[in-house]
Amino acid sequence: MGLLFLALQIRSIFSDQLKQEYSGLVLEGIERAESARNLVRVWQRQADNSIARPGQPEQSDDYRRARIDLAGRLTSLAALVNASPSAAPPIPRSALSPDTNLDDTDALLAVQSVYWRAQRTNDSADARTRIARVASTLIVLSACVFGALVTALGMYAKRARQLAGESHKFEHAALHDAMTGLPNRRKLFATLAETATGSSGNPTLLKIAVIYIDLDGFKQVNDSLGHDVGDEFLIAVSKRFRKTVRLVDVVARFGGDEFVVLVREFSTNAELEAIAQRLIDCVLQTDEQMGIGFVRASIGIASFPHPVRDYHQLVAAADETMYQVKRNGKNGYAFATRVG
């Protein structure tokens, strides 16, 4: 109820302010009309003091222009006054003619000025009264709201901590493979871009590489031994992949039985060869441990900035090279030679 009362009072305050502004516009119009009327007086006195000459018009052109300007000012004023939502004294159409009696114009402007000045004063007083009521209500409500606010802030802080934890879980789930726990392709590409460009967004001077791994014969595992065994193999080989590379490097599950290792810095191809051989050994060890006997690995290696000049093409180049290994007998590795 207090908030409803405040809303109504604030609305009334805005209404009073609008009324004050409207009264101000009308009073400005009255002042402009009075200025035009004073100019007419000046030209009228000059005409009365001049000695009429044969053939000279009784009214000068300046006087006629002043009367026309006065009529225009009165017309603008009448548009404001007659459109007012309040019961303001109307301005009749007869008062807008350039030939209207000037005494009647003086009386009209005097009436309008008195009314609208009083109207603005009353609206201002109403606004001040309502502002005082709003201030008193706010003081009372603040005492009631303060306790509830403190409680709400405590609940909000607790909920915010819960949401932060849930948000972190959701973000982790969106960027990692649910079965193996490895980063997924989305996380891989984000890390690749960050590594290749650095914080400045420009290509770095580091040599980086992508090692693309495909498990040869894995489809046969699923077909002959079942998907549960296949999933167990993927989980086991993922753990071995993660242990055999450096902590700074990224092992990602690209999809199905395909994995990608992002080597975030290296010096020579010999280092990449050693990593590739260890990855092949990981697959062989997992195969032997589970007693399968036919799962091996084909690996393609692509490095940046040479020979692949565009880091966006690293994964595609490594993938293409991996298929070349498959076509040449599988269970091995090769380096990409094309320039991107």
Rank of each mutant, 00 (worst) to 15 (best):
R186W: 10
I139M: 02
A157P: 01
N184P: 11
V140I: 14
M155A: 11
G147K: 06
L175A: 11
F146T: 13
A164I: 02
H176I: 03
A148T: 11
F189G: 03
F170C: 08
V140Q: 06
V145D: 11
K169V: 08
A190F: 05
G147D: 04
T180G: 04
M155T: 00
L163P: 00
Y156C: 00
E166T: 07
S142R: 05
A174L: 13
V140H: 05
G154S: 00
L188N: 01
T180N: 10
L153Y: 06
S142E: 01
F189W: 08
E166A: 14
A143M: 12
H172N: 10
G147Q: 01
D177F: 09
T137L: 15
A190R: 13
L149P: 06
A178C: 01
A164M: 04
L138M: 13
L188I: 11
H172T: 13
D177N: 10
I139F: 01
S136P: 12
Y156I: 00
F170A: 15
C144D: 09
A132H: 11
L141T: 04
A160I: 03
G165C: 05
A173L: 12
A174Q: 03
A135R: 14
H168L: 14
V134C: 09
G147F: 01
V134N: 05
H176C: 02
V145T: 07
L149Q: 10
V145N: 04
V134K: 01
V145E: 11
M155H: 03
R185G: 05
C144H: 11
L149N: 07
A152Q: 05
F146E: 07
